[in-house]
Computed example of a mutant assay.
Amino acid sequence: MKKIVVLFTMFTVLISAAQTMQDSITFDPQKQLNAAQRLLSGNYGKAVTVGAYGELTYNQPEAKNGELDVQRLVLLFGYKFNDKTQFVTELELEHVEEVFVEQAFVNYAIASNVSLRGGLMLVPMGIVNEFHEPTTFNGVERPAVDNVIVPSTWREIGVGVTGRFNDLSLGYQAYVFNGFKSTASDGQSGLSGFLSGSSGLRGGRQKAIQSTVDSPTLSVKLDYYGLPGLRLGLSGYTGKTQAEDDIEEFDGANIGVTMLGLDARYAYQRFTARGQFVYASLKDTEAYNVATGKDLGSALQGWYLEGAYNLLPQSNQQRLFAFLRYEQYDTHADTAGSLVRNDAYNRTDITTGLSYHIAPGVVLKGDYQFRDNALAGDQVDDRLNFGIGVWF
């Protein structure tokens, strides 16, 4: 807790000490748009809008072979039926071998500050799950908190409402989704599980692939824009995981998930900063672990703080950000029943590097990650990363 207080104090001091104005739509969090928002706002009289983003990465763990990967290529398509009705979809190719639909929803504008949405959508939790285009974040890899706990890219099928109260500088989203899938039949008389201590909730994403649903979940997010350069987010998610008809009555087939997220983004002159905290409380994990043989914790927690500074003059079109991110995350923040806490799941990453935006929509990245966990004597490989990212 003392570390958290010290780091948040440093975060505040850095904000107050920053100089030179940051006015780019890419880096000002109050103006920043994600891919879907750009499609919805960028028709300019055209019926069809097309875009894409992609990442090519190189990861070199200490004393091991490196890996080159076309990590993802996402094709973006938007269609404007009329002034009120639009369709947005994202088609993702991962590792040159897997194809997914990342988003596919209809947006119907009831008024200037209220829209109804239905389809496959991103769950609004934290920063990166909604803003994961490679030019919008520092570091070759997304923060680990946004992979293990949130986990990006987290999307489900649902319906809801979104908009903003301009007088209050407050944006809002509220959706009803299907939830994580926690279990399946093991083909005999037991259950296999998708959630675990090592990967958290990540394995439970259904990704709209013949998703099963037996109880809806609720997701809500509020964004505040009232102070210059600052964007604050409060996210909430609650509901139960989903199980198929033949096993949903088994003890441990489903668990309850309640998640709270806080996030902040700031930009002033050549300085940018962001921070995020996510806590998830899980119910009935003892029965789930007994039924599946997994080691899922009853609480997951993670947070990070990051500061970055543009080393080039603000008048330049190019930007070169030097950044530092401190991240701590624990998928065994608490455990239930006889499950013993595994300190290997209590992890710390320190990432530092450069993001060189050679043109709007093109970034070259390089960073080094110092990685560790709380298990005595355990060795986690540090990692060198390089990447190329594009978005248009």
Score class of each variant (00 low, 15 high):
residue 246 D to S: 15
residue 306 E to F: 08
residue 341 R to C: 02
residue 364 L to E: 02
residue 27 F to N: 10
residue 55 E to G: 05
residue 134 P to I: 11
residue 181 K to H: 06
residue 312 L to T: 05
residue 154 W to D: 02
residue 232 L to Y: 09
residue 132 H to T: 08
residue 186 D to Y: 11
residue 15 I to Q: 15
residue 259 M to Y: 00
residue 26 T to L: 14
residue 136 T to L: 15
residue 337 G to S: 07
residue 122 L to N: 08
residue 93 L to F: 14
residue 237 Y to A: 03
residue 60 Q to N: 12
residue 259 M to L: 14
residue 384 L to D: 01
residue 114 V to D: 01
residue 91 L to N: 12
residue 54 G to H: 10
residue 242 Q to I: 03
residue 157 I to R: 09
residue 196 S to D: 15
residue 354 L to H: 04
residue 273 A to M: 12
residue 226 G to L: 09
residue 313 P to D: 11
residue 269 Q to I: 01
residue 295 D to H: 10
residue 89 T to W: 05
residue 91 L to R: 02
residue 176 V to Y: 04
residue 325 R to I: 06
residue 379 Q to H: 13
residue 318 Q to P: 01
residue 231 R to Y: 04
residue 303 W to E: 00
residue 307 G to D: 04
residue 176 V to D: 02
residue 125 M to K: 02
residue 40 L to H: 03
residue 6 V to H: 08
residue 110 I to W: 12
residue 199 S to R: 15
residue 23 D to C: 04
residue 26 T to M: 10
residue 100 F to G: 02
residue 235 S to D: 05
residue 24 S to V: 04
residue 309 Y to G: 05
residue 257 V to D: 00
residue 385 N to I: 07
residue 344 A to P: 00
residue 75 L to C: 01
residue 288 Y to S: 04
residue 374 A to D: 15
residue 292 T to G: 06
residue 1 M to S: 11
residue 162 T to K: 13
residue 62 E to P: 00
residue 79 Y to W: 15
residue 161 V to F: 09
residue 107 N to L: 02
residue 113 N to D: 15
residue 338 S to N: 13
residue 43 N to E: 03
residue 89 T to I: 03
residue 343 D to H: 08
residue 275 G to K: 06
residue 80 K to L: 08
residue 282 L to M: 06
residue 389 G to I: 13
residue 160 G to S: 11
residue 141 E to D: 15
residue 28 D to T: 12
residue 338 S to H: 05
residue 131 F to S: 03
residue 111 A to L: 04
residue 357 H to Q: 08
residue 85 T to H: 10
residue 84 K to E: 09
residue 115 S to E: 03
residue 363 V to K: 08
residue 150 V to T: 14
residue 331 T to V: 07
residue 224 Y to P: 01
residue 8 F to I: 00
residue 325 R to C: 05
residue 180 F to E: 03
residue 163 G to V: 08
residue 140 V to Q: 05
residue 100 F to P: 00
residue 350 I to C: 06
residue 281 S to P: 00
residue 381 D to F: 04
residue 112 S to H: 11
residue 224 Y to K: 07
residue 154 W to N: 12
residue 100 F to Q: 11
residue 334 D to N: 13
residue 222 L to H: 08
residue 255 I to W: 02
residue 258 T to V: 09
residue 275 G to V: 03
residue 146 D to R: 06
residue 65 N to E: 14
residue 298 S to I: 05
residue 172 Y to K: 08
residue 351 T to R: 14
residue 139 G to N: 06
residue 309 Y to H: 07
residue 15 I to E: 09
residue 142 R to T: 07
residue 123 V to S: 10
residue 250 F to I: 01
residue 5 V to F: 14
residue 56 L to M: 12
residue 375 L to F: 04
residue 283 K to F: 01
residue 170 L to R: 06
residue 382 D to L: 04
residue 196 S to E: 11
residue 7 L to R: 09
residue 358 I to R: 01
residue 240 K to T: 09
residue 61 P to N: 13
residue 219 S to P: 01
residue 318 Q to R: 12
residue 167 D to W: 07
residue 295 D to W: 04
residue 366 G to D: 03
residue 378 D to M: 05
residue 201 L to R: 09
residue 363 V to E: 04
residue 274 R to K: 15
residue 43 N to P: 00
residue 136 T to Q: 15
residue 94 E to N: 15
residue 228 P to M: 10
residue 195 L to S: 11
residue 59 N to G: 12
residue 126 G to E: 06
residue 98 E to K: 15
